[in-house]
């Protein structure tokens, strides 16, 4: 049973690397106080703010303080408006979760059935239609898809709003924009996974036992085909968050992504740092969950990985 501790140690190592990386990159790019404050400021005021923001200490002390702060849930103060950086980020989380969750829902709802259908009727016109749409879907840059949707549904047809987040109608276009590429990717993974499973010997066994086609697909093929798809999903969550930044900017959706582009433009170090660490935490956690799910779906992994890691 070495499987879980090894996995946890890896997650912890990744987290440590991320936090250190964020610190190094954001601190070594120059004096934040000099960047943030106006150029003509006098030395005394500069020193005051450097002291206030903890920038006057040696770098290793800053690093330790930074860790101590993080472990206490203290992500620093937004340089721009003196608010707690974590609170600023946290109040945006529901909006991004709503957008990302809806997009993921759309992607799963379209992608999985499409992939399964394409695999069952492999090389038929159904397969070709689905797979051709999938190639178009994931080749479409989502900022461009967003703009095309705004042109069609907001400016020409005037059915849906192009920006903001007040009502459910506001969610439609951004969620479609963000979900389309993922639906296409999930369709491809489900298809290849299903094709592999359908050619296995146990499928023939099931068929010769007299199991009907619906039962065969639903109870024998899909659970086995789900394993690799789940793994891919875990990796894709990070990509989803990355593309959410662009989508939120296109539709002026007030989530984490827009806060990030805004903070980046204002050089608000504490907020950017907080967002990056929370994102990494989300990613590491989702990868962990996927690994655990994977072990649960496929008992061979638990045993295999445990012995492979000596």
């Amino acid at each position: 049973m070495t499987w879980l501790p090894v996995r946890l140690a890896r997650a912890a190592l990744t987290m440590w690397l991320v936090v250190t990386f964020v610190f190094v990159v954001l601190r070594l790019t120059g004096d934040p106080a000099a960047i943030l404050l106006p150029d003509d400021i006098d030395a005394q005021t500069l020193a005051f703010y450097r002291e206030k923001w903890g920038l006057a200490d040696p770098l290793w002390q800053q690093y330790l303080k930074y860790w101590a702060g993080l472990l206490h849930g203290d992500f620093g103060i937004s340089f721009r408006n003196d608010m707690d950086a974590f609170a600023l980020v946290w109040e945006r989380v529901p909006k991004t979760a709503l957008l990302g969750g809806t997009a993921l829902g759309i992607a799963l709802f379209i992608g999985i059935p499409a992939g399964i259908l394409a695999a069952i009727w492999k090389d038929s016109w159904i397969d070709r239609t689905i797979m051709t749409s999938a190639v178009f879907g994931f080749s479409m840059p989502n900022f461009f898809l967003g703009i095309l949707l705004i042109l069609a549904f907001s400016l020409r047809l005037r059915w849906l709003p192009s920006s903001g987040s007040g009502t459910w109608a506001h969610l439609v276009l951004p969620a479609i924009t963000l979900g389309t590429g993922f639906a296409a990717q999930i369709a491809r993974y489900s298809r290849s996974s299903m094709i592999e499973v359908l050619s296995r010997a146990y499928m023939r066994t099931a068929s010769s036992k007299g199991t009907g086609p619906v039962r065969r697909v639903a109870l024998h093929a899909i659970p086995n085909a789900a394993v690799p798809v789940v793994t891919v999903l875990g990796i894709q969550v990070g990509q989803l968050l990355g593309w959410a930044v662009v989508t939120e900017t296109v539709f002026a959706w007030p989530g984490i992504g827009r806060l990030l582009t805004h903070s980046v433009a204002l050089r608000d170090l504490a907020v950017v740092q907080c967002i990056m660490i929370l994102l990494a935490l989300t990613m590491v956690t989702s990868n962990m969950i996927v690994d655990i799910l994977y072990g649960w779906l496929d008992p061979r992994v638990r045993v295999g990985a445990g012995t492979a890691q000596k």
Binding site: T14, L17, V18, F21, I235, G238, Q239, L241, G242, W243, V245, L260, I275, M276, L279, A280, M283, V284, N287
Partner: peptide
């Protein structure tokens, strides 16, 4: 580590 960080961000 590289896979854990959305590199775009």
């Amino acid at each position: 580590f590289q896979a854990a960080m959305p590199w775009f961000i």
